[in-house]
Nucleic acid binder design. Structure first.
Lengths: 233, 233
DNA sequence: GTCGAAACGGAACTAAGAGTTCCGTTTTTT
DNA sequence: AAAAAACGGAACTCTTAGTTCCGTTTCGAC
């Protein structure tokens, strides 16, 4: 490493030494590029692509973020937060069903325009307590939405929070395999899904997957943020 | 290549010279192993895994099948055929709705126990006219199922064949990300999906994706059967 | 039973990614 | 103008996967 280079973190911390003007500008560009690129390509997006989009060399990127993970995490948490905000907003609807419907619609729209949203649902950064906490809040907000919609009689009684996961996993696949070429697929699927949630005339459902299993299943492949494939031996 | 080695094809053709006994036995083992392995891992399954499962060296495998693609294709077409059989059987139900429902259920079950089924739906082998033809037959059989179920008034009128694709893509994702850990997910999802198809009280759907676009979307990534990453320059 | 052809196994080679480092050059700052 | 900081991107490493090569083993015809 060169003399002047210094390891620092993506999130400027209190008391961090000020960056040179060009460095600060590049830091912002990198974060912005990361947002864009992983929205399109998902968290697996290669570093080179991010650097290119930011108009910066990879070296520059690594000077600011000690590794790929550090960089991704910044953006990842941002998204999780937005996810939570969506749930909370939905809760403010006075019509509970409308609130729930809006929630699903917004989530699907987010999935369609940003692949990371799906990843937030699915993946765990290694050791990110903050993400765990955000997920917890998302879930409990979501539960309140569901309960309210059921009480109102607008949502089938045997619907469970796990079903939301099923729908989102399903919709993610629709968007990922069909989204670009056949964008009508997403709204079409969502509309069908909503019809499945009506209480009237609903056939009884087989039992829902256990939540803990579901969580385990979704967090399974730590494939996401691989550490050190190359580099230091 | 050694003197004795000879390029031949996976499917024994008329007039092909007879294989030695051990060779013939290995050839069968390889095909069987391929079936098993790609059922579990999908068409991307590495050749080494297949060879290992067959209890055979990779060399042996390549002596019989000039390349990976050749091998996969054999099994792939077998599956596509079974897919078609399922559709045809469903057509024999006297109750059209039952037929259609059974069709979907069988398809989902097949997806759950064999990843290749999804691949058959999604992917094209390079230059496989036979697969194209099978697909065509599958589609037309499926269309008859749908028409009959609608006429009987058991299936919502705005349902289209494209919706079957949506459901299968969605279900494939459910099985792939949740299947192992939370096997209840698949039947649960299917039951919800079937409820979405009821004609009574169905909300009007947004327009379906155009079939040609859908086909294009699904056949997009020719990622599947990559040719020559290494090997002959 | 022997011997040549056929087949075998699996190490080694090639290619394509992808993350990380290194260092000669450029830009800021004082 | 000089020193410090930052820059860019080629080069290096590791991984994964398809394919070939060749010394060794097995089969089958005589």
């Amino acid at each position: 490493m060169n003399k002047g280079d210094r390891i620092s973190q993506g999130n400027v911390q209190a008391g961090a030494p000020k960056l040179r003007k060009d460095a600060e500008r590049n830091r912002r560009r990198i974060i912005e590029a990361t947002r864009e690129v992983i929205a399109e390509l998902g968290v697996h997006a290669p570093v080179d692509e991010i650097a290119k989009r930011a108009g910066v060399g990879v070296g520059t990127l690594y000077r600011r973020f000690p590794d790929r993970t550090e960089l991704i995490e910044t953006v990842f948490l941002e998204r999780a937060q937005r996810y939570l905000d969506t749930a909370r907003e939905a809760l403010r609807h006075e019509d509970a069903w409308e609130g729930f419907r809006t929630y699903l619609e917004r989530l699907c729209a987010m999935q369609a325009e940003d692949r990371v949203v799906t990843d937030v649902l699915t993946l765990n950064l290694p050791d990110s307590p903050r993400l765990v906490e955000l997920r917890y809040r998302i879930h409990s907000t979501q539960n309140r939405l569901i309960r309210a919609a059921k009480q109102q009689g607008a949502l089938r009684a045997d619907f469970t929070p796990e079903d939301v996961v099923l729908l989102l996993v399903a919709h993610a696949a629709i968007v990922q395999s069909l989204g670009d070429e056949a964008p009508e697929s997403s709204p079409r699927f969502l509309a069908l899904a909503l019809d499945a949630l009506r209480p009237d005339g609903a056939a009884p459902l087989p039992s829902a997957p256990r939540p803990d299993r579901l969580v385990k299943a979704m967090q399974r492949p730590p494939v996401v943020v691989r550490r050190r494939p190359g580099g230091t031996p």
